[in-house]
Nucleic acid binder design. Structure first.
Lengths: 207, 207
DNA sequence: GTTAAGATTTAGGTATGCCAAAACTTGAAG
DNA sequence: CTTCAAGTTTTGGCATACCTAAATCTTAAC
């Protein structure tokens, strides 16, 4: 159940517009709407959503892999293109890339049938000191943060040791290849990691 | 000067809608509108239009060249994508393709600065019997026609001899590599050729 | 020169998506 | 159990883009 206000905030649109749109989506059977309480995707709605996520992540991967984009340059472009590519183009890009399972930010790419394997991760600032973690996913929303993360070398697949947790909103200190790295809390929030004890069967993206 | 009705026909939209839109475009200074007479692009309008044509042809070329599309599959996809690609993506595709000057249908791709070199061609059905011509451009609009043209081997760059002009709407007969080919008038109308006497400085697309 | 055919514009209507502000629920505090 | 603030929905409006039908204008044929 997502509250109305969260959607309005997320989409940069007025609460009234959200209510209106939820009504339409409910009519289309894409969501169930419990008035004054929130909305949830139906199976049909989830299918549409996952298809769009597949488009988005595939496009991001293609732009980086095939056209030399930086991982900080792809989000906006993908946001526009995800709505206009055909199933054929989706398929061709997927094949051209060798059927990738992860996008450049470490987010899993849903399979053609809509299967989406999310394996458990936690935000870097929640990882306990002393734990060994693998950088798993970086939020693709803020290009500046992506560049900062890249500069620190904290790209998906890298293994780091959490040396110091954040105290009083201070930076988190991790160790990468033996060197200590100070990660501002704002950056850490955009980084999700996988605890090393959780075996992942090699499913996380390559460094 | 394009008459209003031609636009309505072309766009599959009512004449009233065309008038309305022309008014808006005139407000935006993209066209000059001479009521009851027609409309013409201004320099600013031409720039926008050529940019969109560049997008369209570049996308078509990219889909064929990089993603294995058939030349009959690209028009629709390009029509949707041409409006949502960034200048960066345009540039990257162009570079990835080696700065092509022609799309898969033989249509010239405008240069980044908007320069568009159209060299003179004539519809195949207008080529005099006995003339030697080079297949220059095939209309990308009708996929079925493109497949038919391809089956006949009349792809851009091929040189043919016009053996027989159309009589009473009958087929045109051309000779390709010595073999006679009968081209239905409806197909010939989609094919533009370049008279061999007009030197083209190698600007036409490769076979 | 009329005038009728054909093209263009106007008028009135549909549907979408957004907003601001008014009206309404809900749930938690008193 | 009442009240009220926060959050949600409704209402009334604006803008876009399209349509049909009716009114109006052009032009080309007599």
């Amino acid at each position: 159940m997502v509250p109305n206000s969260a959607l309005a905030e997320e989409m940069g649109v007025s609460p009234g517009s959200v209510s209106e749109m939820l009504g339409k989506l409910a009519t289309l059977k894409l969501i169930v709407h419990d008035p004054y309480r929130g909305a949830r995707l139906t199976a049909a709605g989830l299918k549409v959503a996952v298809e769009m996520i597949r488009h988005h992540r595939l496009i991001e991967t293609y732009l980086v892999q095939a056209l030399g984009y930086g991982w900080d340059e792809v989000h906006e472009e993908a946001d526009r293109l995800e709505h206009s590519i055909s199933e054929l183009l989706e398929e061709r890009m997927w094949q051209a890339l060798g059927r990738p399972a992860f996008d450049p930010h470490g987010d899993p790419i849903p399979a053609p049938d809509g299967t989406l394997v999310e394996h458990p991760t936690l935000p870097l600032q929640s990882a306990p000191a002393g734990s060994e973690v693998v950088i798993s996913r970086i939020s693709d929303r803020d290009p500046a943060k992506l560049r900062a993360v890249e500069r620190l070398g904290l790209t998906p697949g890298r293994r780091v040791l959490v040396v110091e947790q954040s105290v009083w909103e201070g930076p988190i200190v991790v160790s990468l290849d033996g060197s200590p790295i100070s990660v501002p809390l704002g950056l850490a929030r955009a980084i999700r990691v996988e605890d090393i004890r959780v075996e992942d069967g090699g499913r996380h993206p390559p460094a």
